[in-house]
Simulated scan of single mutants.
Amino acid sequence: MVYFKYGKAFHDLRIQHGFSLSAFEELGIAKSTLSNFENGKSMLSFDRLDFALQKMNVSPLDYSLMINNGEQDSYISIFDEIEQAYYQRDIKHLQEIYQENRSGSKEQKLVAYSAKGLYQYLLSQEIDELEDYIKGIQFWGLFELSILANIGDKLNDTLIDNVLEDFLYNKSYYENVLYYRVLIYRFLYKVILNYVDTGKKENAQEILEISKQFFMPGDVMSRVIINYAQSFYCYYYIDEKKGKNQLQDTLRFLKKIGAIDFRNTLKMQYDKRITKKNRSE
């Protein structure tokens, strides 16, 4: 029963907060419907699940933790290590995380692939495992979004479209949590660069337009990363000189505000696509 973990987590939260099955009928969720969901026989529509969680004053993070049996804290810690190692270009540590998790549970393997995908190509078998997992996701919590932020650009185009459709359909849900938005931006950034690299101009333009729909007033660094991706798009498809100037302006801005590790990571992308190209000409 693929829906069991989602229903069980909801059941545990409902009991914990003292709500009966009938308490959600005012939201249009019949007792039988909720019972089937909690017993893993069916899945609630996302909007109804969102309303039900709001009624209990349960945040997306709380529900995400329950889905992962409270183990998400340890995974978040590992993803923080992966992110730090990536920005510091500590390939050795990324390799260590991969080796430590590659032979573990399904979740550990996905953590391993998240680390490996940042310094080396994934094997086709590893990508297949990633895609099979993504296809089964009914609720995007921090664990799932962290995987997507690291290696979501390795998915096939159809699956990327499905993920984006889910995000847009339930946009109000994801945009209310800053960390969720940050992870989504990281995913979008990598997908845009991948499409630019592979000459898929229309796909890259579409993702750029989608990315703007998730911006919130305080998302400064997220705007920086998306604008950086847009500058690469400009460089390759609109105006090479203008795009290059925009990229350099971003790097200077990050240096000025002291975001050195972040700047160095973006500079690596610049060197890979611009500096290397200029040297070969």
Score class of each variant (00 low, 15 high):
Asn194Cys: 06
Ile192Cys: 08
Glu129Asn: 00
Ser35Pro: 01
Ile78Gly: 07
Asp90Glu: 12
Ala115Arg: 00
Thr158Ala: 11
Lys41Val: 09
Lys106Leu: 04
Tyr173Pro: 01
Ala259Phe: 13
Asn39Ser: 01
Phe24Ile: 11
Tyr121Ile: 02
Ala259Met: 14
Lys201Glu: 12
Glu175Leu: 11
Lys272Val: 02
Leu13Ser: 10
Ser146Ile: 03
Ala149Ser: 13
Ile97Ala: 02
Tyr113Thr: 00
Asn150Trp: 00
Leu53Cys: 12
Leu193Cys: 09
Val191Arg: 00
Leu266Val: 07
Phe4Lys: 15
Glu165Trp: 07
Met216Arg: 14
Leu13Trp: 09
Gly141Leu: 10
Asp50Tyr: 13
Glu144Pro: 04
Glu96Tyr: 06
Gly199Tyr: 02
Arg186Asp: 02
Ile207Cys: 02
Thr250Phe: 10
Glu240Phe: 04
Ile257Cys: 13
Lys200Ser: 05
Gly141Val: 06
Phe232Asp: 02
Asn101Ser: 08
Leu65Asn: 15
Arg273Leu: 07
Asp128Arg: 13
Leu251Arg: 11
Glu129Ile: 00
Lys92Thr: 13
Leu251Lys: 11
Leu94Glu: 04
Ile210Arg: 03
Ile67Asp: 09
Thr198Asp: 03
Asn194Lys: 02
Leu44Tyr: 08
Tyr236Thr: 04
Ala149Gly: 04
Val220Ala: 12
Leu247Pro: 01
Ile274Asp: 02
Asp249Tyr: 14
Phe262Arg: 14
Gln248Arg: 15
Ile29Phe: 09
Arg263Met: 15
Lys255Glu: 15
Ala229Trp: 05
Val182Trp: 11
Asp271Cys: 07
Ser20His: 04
Ala9Leu: 13
Tyr237Arg: 04
Lys212Thr: 08
Met56Cys: 05
Ile151Val: 11
Asp197Arg: 05
Arg186Leu: 08
Gln54Phe: 13
Arg181Ala: 06
Tyr174Met: 05
Glu206Tyr: 05
Arg279Pro: 03
Gln95Glu: 12
Leu251Glu: 06
Leu266Ile: 10
Leu118Asp: 01
Phe167Gln: 03
Gln88Phe: 09
Phe143Pro: 10
Gly243Lys: 03
Arg14Asp: 05
Tyr86Asn: 12
Phe10Cys: 03
His11Lys: 15
Asp128Gln: 11
Asp197Thr: 03
Ile82Cys: 05
Phe24His: 08
Phe215Ser: 04
Ser35Asn: 11
Lys276Pro: 01
Asn69Thr: 00
Arg223Ile: 08
Ile260Tyr: 14
Ser172Gln: 10
Leu148Phe: 03
Val111Ser: 00
Asn278Glu: 14
Leu21Arg: 11
His11Ile: 06
Lys55Tyr: 14
Arg252Leu: 15
Ile160Glu: 00
Gln138Gly: 15
Leu254Thr: 13
His11Asp: 12
Ile257Asp: 09
Ile82Lys: 00
Thr275Leu: 11
Asn194Thr: 09
Gln125Asp: 15
Gln95Gly: 02
Leu110Met: 06
Phe24Thr: 02
Lys277Trp: 07
Phe51Lys: 13
Asn36Cys: 11
Ser42His: 07
Thr158Lys: 08
Phe167Leu: 13
Asp153Cys: 12
Ala112Leu: 02
